[in-house]
């Protein structure tokens, strides 16, 4: 079968790298082709007809021409530019984190439609969210699900016994929860509270409408974040780069809040 020389696809822009004088290498996530890399010629010039349509965190319709190493982007049209996502420092950061996760976990030209839909939905949810942390956790759990890394949260990954509502352990390299007996023999497993396990299970097994109703306190949120972060770090064998920025932003926002509280009026 011959493949057409030009083709059209929807895409979410994950990343871009500058190339030469005014070109860019774009990393796109598409519904039918999975992740692809393509060149956008002249996209850095002001007045480029491509430029604004292929910024990260954009959902666009893209026409590509086959090239030798990379395909070349010839036409673009924005479908949704997620303005609320870009006008807010926090939302931009959350969105970029989601993009980086998808980029790190996927291989080029390996289609995975559910991931495309999940990422697109996540952007939409983030646009309306004041606190995106829970959305990110929901996103992480479901992303891992579609990638085949779904953490086992029902029974102990070592002895298969059903988990009791007592403090258990989470083991990143076994990809799931350990019962207290097995967990104590596993030196790298971290403790997992009853509530954290409950919330993780609920997010893993429900749709977003149900998941969004969960309200959790900051302490629990932080525990769940750490569990997920350790698991993701183990799977990727490295740190997700945008977490450093996320932490920094959190720290500074806290400082500003404290400054305002302590400021004499």
């Amino acid at each position: 079968m011959t493949t057409p020389r030009v083709y059209k696809t929807e895409a979410i822009i994950l990343k871009r790298i500058n190339l030469g004088e005014a070109d860019r290498i774009m990393t796109l996530y598409t519904p039918q082709l999975g992740k692809i890399k393509a060149i956008a010629k002249g996209a850095r010039r002001p007045g480029s007809k491509l430029g604004g349509h292929i910024e990260p965190l954009t959902h666009s319709l893209i026409m590509l021409a086959r090239g030798r190493n990379f395909d070349i982007i010839t036409q673009t049209q924005t479908i949704n530019s997620f303005l609320p996502l870009r006008n807010d420092l926090w939302r931009t950061t959350w969105g970029l984190y989601a993009c980086e996760l998808v980029d790190s976990f996927t291989e080029e030209r390996l289609a995975n439609r559910p991931i495309f839909d999940l990422l697109l939905n996540t952007f939409n949810w983030l646009c309306e969210a004041n606190n995106g942390e829970n959305i990110l956790r929901y996103f992480e759990l479901h992303l891992l699900n579609y990638l085949g890394y779904r953490p086992q949260l029902r029974q102990c990954v070592t002895c298969n016994s059903p988990l009791q509502p007592i403090p258990n352990f989470f083991s990143p390299h076994q990809g799931g929860v350990l019962c207290p007996n097995c967990g104590l023999q596993e030196p790298v497993a971290r403790p997992l509270s009853v509530n954290a396990l409950k919330v993780l299970r609920l997010w893993q097994n429900s749709d977003y409408t149900t998941a969004r109703r969960i309200r959790i306190n900051p302490q629990l949120a932080s525990e769940i974040e750490q569990v997920m972060r350790e698991y993701i770090r183990y799977l990727l064998e490295r740190e997700v780069k945008s977490t450093a920025w996320l932490d920094k932003l959190r720290q500074e926002t806290q400082r500003i809040v404290v400054d305002n509280l302590t400021k004499p009026n």
Partner: peptide, 9 residues
Amino acid sequence: ITPTEGVGP
């Protein structure tokens, strides 16, 4: 600032 490249403030 480029979060995905680890360039922070």
